[in-house]
Amino acid sequence: MHAIALTDRFARVRELAPGMTISLVVAAAATFLAEHYGAPVLLFALLLGMALNFLSGEGSCKAGIEFTARSVLRIGVALLGMRITLGQIAELGWMPVVLVVTLVVVTISLSVVAARLMGFQRLFGMLTGGATAICGASAALALAASLPNHPQKERATLFTVIGVSVLSTLAMITYPMIARFFELTPVESGVFLGATIHDVAQVVGAGYSMSTETGDVATVVKLMRVAMLLPVILVAAMITRMQGADPASGKRPPLLPLFAVGFLVLACINSTGWVPAMVQSGVNDLSRWCLVIAIAAIGMKTQLRELAAVGIKPILLMVGETVFLVALVLLLMHWGIKP
């Protein structure tokens, strides 16, 4: 019996190896390009993967690419929990927490309404709104893993990843100018940057380009937004359960996906302060690699002509969400919701 099980596992590994290997190679190439040209690594991984989309057709790579786009993605999202501690959130007091919770709830809610008014499914609004309000491409991938299966889900996910990556890079350049224009203090600038820029890397870049204090505050506020990923995933999972059984497996999905449980457990472990810095850094690097490898695989599953057919409306939706987020944060800070 054990020999049969072992043989089956080896056969499964041989089946997955080609697709996982090519995903890893694309991720390594994307990382090299990102380090040398300063663009978001997830965007490079996505574009390189799309250039190799012929590999996801019938052939030796198909199974491994499917596995990487689904399972490796969920591992990467779970490992994001190691970026967060409860102490980091407590240090800034309750005002930034109120600001973050408010902007996430309001932005996602209005995004769902706007998407519906523009003729899209509500879930597309949740996907783009979550990516805008929480943590960019990582949130888009995590929400996509939680939302119900749909023929257009992968195309919507890819479009969202591209959109938030481009908008986040533009924000890294322009938002420090906005902070200076409104004469925000270093702490206020950190709250503004951390609450509005989509991706963690761009928050860090923008914050520390202004000052060390601004960079520290921006990073912590950004991690508060990352922490909001868990309750939003829980809501997405509840929506998925309301849709009934998954057509592919015939089973109702769990109320809280396993990768979300892993996210919560790692965040709690990290909050104890017992995790060595080297281990924490290693887990964060592994999370980043898993997400880059997964987005490379998702890119390989996508046809360029499908993305070209999305039209102008989704672009307007994402730009509108981004502008709304900036206006909302400035308004809340003006009303006194700040450190």
Rank of each mutant, 00 (worst) to 15 (best):
F54M: 11
F259R: 06
C135T: 00
A11F: 15
G273V: 07
R116K: 15
T102K: 06
E91K: 13
L325E: 02
A195R: 01
V292A: 02
V77C: 10
F67P: 01
G205M: 06
T107Y: 04
W335Y: 11
L255T: 11
L330G: 02
E183P: 01
W274N: 05
I315F: 09
R12P: 12
Y208A: 10
V200Y: 04
L330A: 11
L43F: 03
Q243K: 05
L234H: 02
G205T: 05
D216Q: 10
I233S: 00
N53P: 01
T132L: 08
L266D: 01
G136Y: 01
E321L: 07
A267Y: 04
G93F: 13
R252V: 11
M20L: 14
A115G: 04
F32Q: 14
V203L: 07
M82S: 04
P231M: 09
A29T: 14
L255Y: 14
T31Q: 15
A5F: 15
L147I: 05
G194Y: 03
T7H: 15
S189H: 00
T157Y: 03
L256Y: 12
V279D: 14
L123R: 04
G273Q: 09
L33N: 09
V72W: 00
E58P: 08
V112R: 03
G49N: 07
A115S: 05
G81Q: 02
K301I: 12
G81C: 02
R83F: 15
T102L: 07
Q152K: 10
S189M: 07
V292I: 03
H150C: 09
L143S: 06
S71G: 13
V113A: 03
S209P: 07
V100Q: 02
P40M: 00
A309S: 13
K338F: 09
T212A: 12
R9V: 14
A308M: 13
T160A: 15
V166Q: 14
P247V: 12
P151F: 10
P231R: 08
V105S: 00
